[in-house]
Structures are given as structure tokens and as C-alpha cells.
Simulated scan of single mutants.
Amino acid sequence: MKSKKIRLLTILLLFLPLCVVLLGAGCDDDDEYSHMVLGYIVGSFIADEFNSEGEATGNKTERGYCILLEGNEDKSMDFYTFNFPNDLFSFPDEVLSPDYNGYDCGPTFFPDSLKYVYKIKLKYQIVREQDKVQFLTGACLDIGVPFFWENYDQVIVNETTKN
């Protein structure tokens, strides 16, 4: 009888690590970057930061850039980032001003003639909610529909190069 209990215990102890490995393999790691993708810088903005209590800090964000992935040309953008390398392109001043679109409180998108000029190759990681830069892009001048920032992910870009 003792040998059956010992054998059963041994089998259970052997299967326990296997179960742990199989359960761990199914989990997604949100800290990983995407595979290398192609896209375009299609717009930019600078906004006012606010803290977790919703109060303005008086600080401006770094310049945010709007990224459109290749193959999604029917969209205005796929996501935005605040850590795009400043020295990768020399953007004309006129496409970087004003800081945001005052009519819909969204980014200032580049004119159609420049929409596919700034082609990049990059890896990206979606920023966790608690790590996002909290911002507001000013008062809207238009009474129409505001820009829906919540429809777009904030990302961190990595290994960004011209393409």
C-alpha cells in the first residue's frame, strides 16, 4: 500500500512541472515588442499633460507622432508615440505647426502630398494603461465631433529606421 502512495506521489510530482510549463506558455507577455513592421509618419502633435487626478501639470508633452502601418491606408493612423527619434527625419516646420488641430483637438495630419513620404521600419510595444502619458490637446474650436484619442493605442517604438 505504501509503495502505491509513493508511486502516485512521484507521478504527481513529475507532472506538476509539466503543468506549470504548459500554463505559462499560454500567457501573453505584454512587455514584448512586435515584429518589424513598415509604416509612415502621418502627423504630429504637442499636448498639455495632466496628472492621475485629472489636473493640468502646466507641462507640455514631448512631440507625439502619428504612425500609419503599411496596408492600412484607409485609416488616418494606427497609433501614436512620444518616443520617436527626433533626428530620423527633418520635417518641414510648416507640417509641425500648429501643435495640434484646434478644430477637433486631434493631431495635425500631414498634407496628402506628404502622407507617404516619411516611411519607416520599426518595432513597437503598446503602452500599459498605467504607464500612458496623460494629455489633453486643448480647447476645440469646432462644435463638431472631437478626435477620439481612445480609439488609438499609445506605443513605444524601438529599432526605428528610415525605409
Rank of each mutant, 00 (worst) to 15 (best):
D48I: 03
T57M: 05
I41H: 04
K123V: 03
C27M: 09
Y103D: 15
Y124C: 08
T61H: 14
P17S: 10
E70D: 13
N51H: 10
T57W: 01
G64Y: 10
F109Y: 15
M1V: 04
Q134I: 04
N158V: 01
Y124T: 12
R128W: 07
S34V: 13
K119S: 09
P107T: 13
A56E: 14
D28I: 05
V21Y: 14
W149S: 06
S52M: 02
K162H: 05
Y116P: 02
F147S: 01
K132V: 03
R7G: 00
K121F: 04
L69Q: 13
D30R: 07
M1C: 05
N72K: 11
D153F: 12
E49S: 10
P98W: 01
K123I: 01
Q134D: 10
D48G: 05
P146M: 02
D74W: 12
V133S: 15
N83P: 03
V133H: 09
G24N: 08
Y40R: 07
A139S: 08
E53S: 15
T81P: 11
A47V: 01
D30E: 12
D87L: 13
D29F: 02
F135N: 09
N163C: 07
C19R: 04
V157Y: 03
N51P: 11
S34P: 10
T137S: 15
D48A: 12
I120E: 04
P85F: 09
E62I: 02
L22F: 15
S90N: 12
N151F: 03
I6N: 08
G26E: 07
T137A: 14
V20I: 13
L114S: 04
C27H: 04
G54D: 07
A25Y: 12
D99Y: 11
G43Q: 01
V155F: 08
K4T: 09
E53I: 10
